[in-house]
Simulated scan of single mutants.
Amino acid sequence: MADEGLVPSIGSIGDAFDNATAETVMGLFKNEAVARDYPFRTGPLAAKADVDDVVVEWVHSYNNARLHSTLGYRTPVEFEELYYDEIAGTLPDVAASKLAA
């Protein structure tokens, strides 16, 4: 990290401020993808391939279908597309009005 001029971010002992986002996402994953009664589970997680399938399906859904309140109730993919359209100056009027919402 030092070679790139970066400073590590480490919280004090006993707090999770620098890990809060990761812990939130992992909590969602455990409750949604791994829980026995969740739709991503079609059976027991008996083999590594079963776990791989659940992870891939959940991550795809999280990024492409799940609406995130902090992104203006857009998916991460949609938000990123709008962001890059905005900074590139190629944003159509309809998309620009969505960003303002």
Rank of each mutant, 00 (worst) to 15 (best):
L6A: 12
L71V: 04
E23M: 02
D37G: 09
T70M: 00
A95N: 15
R74Q: 01
V34R: 12
L99K: 13
S97T: 15
Y38H: 14
T24W: 01
H68L: 03
A35I: 03
L28V: 02
N31D: 12
V55A: 11
A2V: 10
A95M: 09
L99C: 08
V25G: 07
A2C: 09
V54D: 02
E4C: 10
E80L: 02
N64C: 03
V59R: 12
F40R: 01
T75K: 00
V34Y: 12
I10W: 09
V56L: 13
A95V: 00
E80P: 06
M26N: 14
I10A: 04
A49F: 04
A20G: 15
G43L: 07
F29N: 00
P8R: 01
G89I: 00
D93T: 11
S12A: 14
R36I: 11
A88Q: 12
E86T: 09
A33L: 10
L28Q: 06
A100P: 08
D93E: 15
L6S: 10
D85F: 07
G14L: 05
Y84V: 01
S97F: 13
E32C: 10
P8I: 04
A22V: 05
D53R: 09
E57N: 02
Y83I: 05
E80H: 07
N19K: 15
M1Q: 13
P39H: 13
W58H: 06
A46D: 09
E80F: 05
L28R: 08
P44W: 11
W58K: 13
S12C: 05
T42Y: 05
M26F: 15
V7E: 14
V56H: 04
L28G: 01
M1L: 13
E78N: 02
G89Y: 08
S69G: 05
L28I: 01
V77S: 01
S9Y: 13
E23P: 08
E4Y: 12
G89V: 03
Y73E: 01
R74F: 03
P92A: 00
E78W: 02
E80K: 07
V34C: 12
D15W: 11
V55S: 06
E32F: 08
A49Q: 10
Y84S: 06
V7G: 04
I87D: 05
G5C: 00
A47D: 08
A20I: 04
Y73Q: 02
L71G: 01
I13Q: 03
D18M: 11
A22M: 14
F40V: 06
A47K: 15
Y84A: 00
Y38V: 12
